[in-house]
């Protein structure tokens, strides 16, 4: 099954890239732009078919390597789960 993982900076962690995007949107005349936060998107193909097991494995991956939990949050989406 396929997993989609979104990794974003935690609230309170400065996001200079997000700030730059917000600034650019503003300069381009897009009105009403509030806070912009950017992040990372990772797709993982898994042989595992059991969603519970898959999710556990993915959480382990996020904790150990895919995200740095000092500064980042992650969210996991499983296809068909």
């Amino acid at each position: 099954m396929k997993a989609r993982i979104k990794i974003t900076l935690k609230t309170g962690v400065l996001d200079p890239q997000g700030k730059a995007i917000s600034h650019a949107l503003d300069q381009l005349g897009f009105d009403g732009i509030g806070d912009v936060r950017q992040g990372k998107y990772i797709e993982v193909d898994l042989a595992e078919t059991d969603p519970t097991k898959a999710r556990a494995a993915l959480e382990d991956m996020c904790e150990r390597v895919l995200a740095n939990t000092v500064i980042e949050n992650y969210a996991i989406e499983l296809d068909g789960a």
């Binding site: 962690v13 400065l14 200079p16 890239q17 730059a20 740095n68 000092v70 500064i71």
Partner: peptide, 11 residues
Amino acid sequence: LPGALLRNAHL
């Protein structure tokens, strides 16, 4: 060590 190193503020 504690903390993290983020992208430079000026990118």
